[in-house]
């Protein structure tokens, strides 16, 4: 109860600070199970996106956040108790003894993110299948993360995810990691709603601590139209394109 009250307060503050305007483009607020996926430029992203949803939906919508950032003290309290975030590990813990990963653990390696591989590799999204060192028989990080997300979705919840995996500068939307595709493969019944967050990189850019009150916009687009047998490349393309299109409005 306490957490809910605080969440409402934080949401009101985020809305006031950023004077945010919301546009639902061919999309209506709904209690249907959804995955809201958005571009990612600021720590405020999920707070603002969450805060513009109708109050009755907020209790059902859970942001997905990186455990390494939100794992201690006040951050952890906010993430877990206030926003009911799903915390996932986005990189393997420093390896202890194992040598380089076995070839079979690379099978999920996605191809579409190759250009950004070097710069992005240190902040791999947990839901990104990647070269992971693990003991035989142990769940890989990707499988664990996916399990966490599916469990969090459950029968009635929705999720907020940032498929870029890490915050960008706001100029370009980085290629999406493939976790969102795997999520869809397991739950094709869920609506995938693209969201574009404008100006939040100016409110609280990566690396800054103090926010500046700049008017931001949240644009929610129509749910993705998907074929039953969409390939990974095609799914990721459609999803990325949907967010980019909203950004050009």
């Amino acid at each position: 109860m306490n957490g809910e009250w605080l969440a409402g307060l934080i949401a009101a503050f985020a809305r006031g600070l950023t004077g945010v305007t919301v546009q639902w483009m061919n999309c209506q607020p709904s209690a249907r199970q959804r995955v809201y996926f958005a571009n990612h430029t600021s720590h405020l992203d999920f707070v603002v996106l969450w805060s513009v949803l109708p109050r009755e939906l907020r209790a059902l919508v859970r942001p997905v956040a990186a455990q390494d950032y939100w794992n201690s003290g006040l951050r952890k309290y906010l993430a877990v108790n206030v926003f009911h975030a799903v915390l996932i590990e986005r990189r393997a813990r420093p390896s202890t003894s194992k040598p380089a990963g076995k070839p079979d653990s690379v099978q999920h390696q996605s191809v579409e993110q190759a250009p950004l591989q070097q710069s992005a590799s240190i902040e791999q999204s947990a839901i990104e299948p990647t070269r992971i060192e693990r003991a035989p028989g142990e769940h890989s990080l990707i499988e664990q993360a996916l399990d966490n997300l599916l469990e969090a979705l459950g029968e009635k919840n929705s999720l907020i995810i940032f498929p870029e995996g890490t915050r960008g500068t706001g100029e370009v939307i980085a290629p999406f990691k493939s976790g969102i595709y795997h999520l869809w493969r397991h739950r094709p019944d869920v609506e995938f709603v693209p969201v574009y967050l404008a100006n939040l990189n100016r409110v609280l850019p990566k690396g800054e601590f103090l926010p500046v009150p700049i008017i931001s916009r949240v644009i929610l687009g129509p749910p993705l139209q998907l074929e039953p047998h969409e390939t990974k490349e095609s799914f990721i393309n459609k999803a990325h394109q949907a967010v980019c299109t909203l950004g050009e409005l």
Binding site: G19, T169, R202, E208, L210, V212, P213, I214, I215
Partner: peptide, 19 residues
């Protein structure tokens, strides 16, 4: 001021000055 700054172009390096 918020309306004005939101409308014009600012750069990433302006952040602290804007604060």
């Amino acid at each position: 001021l918020r309306e004005y700054i939101s409308l014009i172009r600012t750069s990433r390096a302006d952040h602290n000055t804007l604060f």
